[in-house]
Simulated scan of single mutants.
Amino acid sequence: MMSTNELPTQVNPDEITPIAVTVGISARHVHLTHEHVETLFGAGYELKRFKDLSQPGQFACEEFVTVVGPKGVIEKVRILGPERKQSQVELSISDCFKIGIKAPLRDSGDLAGSASVTLVGPVGSVTLEEGAIIAARHIHMHSSDAEKFGLEDGDRLYVRAKGPRGIIFGDVLIRAGEKHKLEMHIDTDEGNAVGLRNGDTVYAYKIHGHISQLVK
């Protein structure tokens, strides 16, 4: 697997082939276990599908919860389905400042030792001893795309965003599998800082040369 920390001293610019990737801005949201769905919304409750998301099998629910921290609350945080084996809250750095928690930057699902928050629903509440994270930026791609681009699940790339506030994102995780669709996910803080919006195109690089080659 490639590492963005290992850069060759010389690079042939002709070997740097960009992979065009659509951007998806990931707003704050919550994933819940079945047990926590029932605690928050009532025994036997089933989440209602609001709309499908870009990743196959994933959907936004009609339901919201309030996320409570030591210093504040964020209301109307949408739940995403389907249900998971462990509840997870994905926030931005700005969100964490607002409610007074220090959530770690993590890949989705890496929750050991993450921040504690309380979730409040219309029927009850649940305190997660761990589960709140700032989700690390990543690129979803189907296994066939990964094979075409010469990549593997777990590789990490550079991604260039062009424009007046252009930037190069480093250490972008590749999540490849049969249920993935090509798309880069960043959170609202990252999108706002660079001026990116849903549907914009960025360019991923699998040849890790000097950064200066990518900004020409």
Score class of each variant (00 low, 15 high):
188 T>G: 02
90 E>S: 02
66 T>R: 07
164 P>I: 06
95 D>K: 01
68 V>Q: 14
144 S>F: 07
206 K>H: 14
66 T>L: 03
179 K>E: 14
139 I>K: 00
16 I>D: 03
119 L>S: 05
52 D>H: 11
164 P>Y: 09
158 Y>Q: 02
35 E>Y: 13
59 F>Q: 06
87 S>K: 04
170 G>H: 07
64 F>L: 12
32 L>V: 08
135 A>D: 02
2 M>K: 14
117 V>S: 07
24 G>I: 01
30 V>K: 01
105 L>M: 13
197 R>Q: 15
53 L>D: 03
165 R>L: 11
110 D>N: 09
24 G>C: 04
168 I>R: 04
125 S>H: 07
168 I>W: 04
211 I>R: 13
42 G>E: 03
210 H>F: 06
68 V>G: 04
109 G>T: 08
16 I>A: 09
6 E>V: 13
87 S>N: 08
153 D>Q: 05
177 G>I: 07
76 K>E: 15
69 G>R: 04
197 R>A: 14
78 R>P: 03
43 A>I: 07
129 E>A: 14
48 K>W: 02
151 L>T: 01
191 G>I: 00
96 C>A: 12
79 I>S: 01
147 E>A: 13
30 V>I: 13
172 V>Y: 00
53 L>E: 06
73 V>M: 10
6 E>M: 12
40 L>R: 03
216 K>F: 13
40 L>C: 08
89 V>N: 06
107 D>F: 03
80 L>C: 03
73 V>L: 03
4 T>I: 13
1 M>E: 06
189 D>S: 12
135 A>F: 04
63 E>V: 04
29 H>Q: 10
50 F>W: 09
147 E>L: 10
134 I>Y: 00
190 E>T: 01
84 R>M: 09
182 L>I: 10
17 T>Q: 15
33 T>N: 12
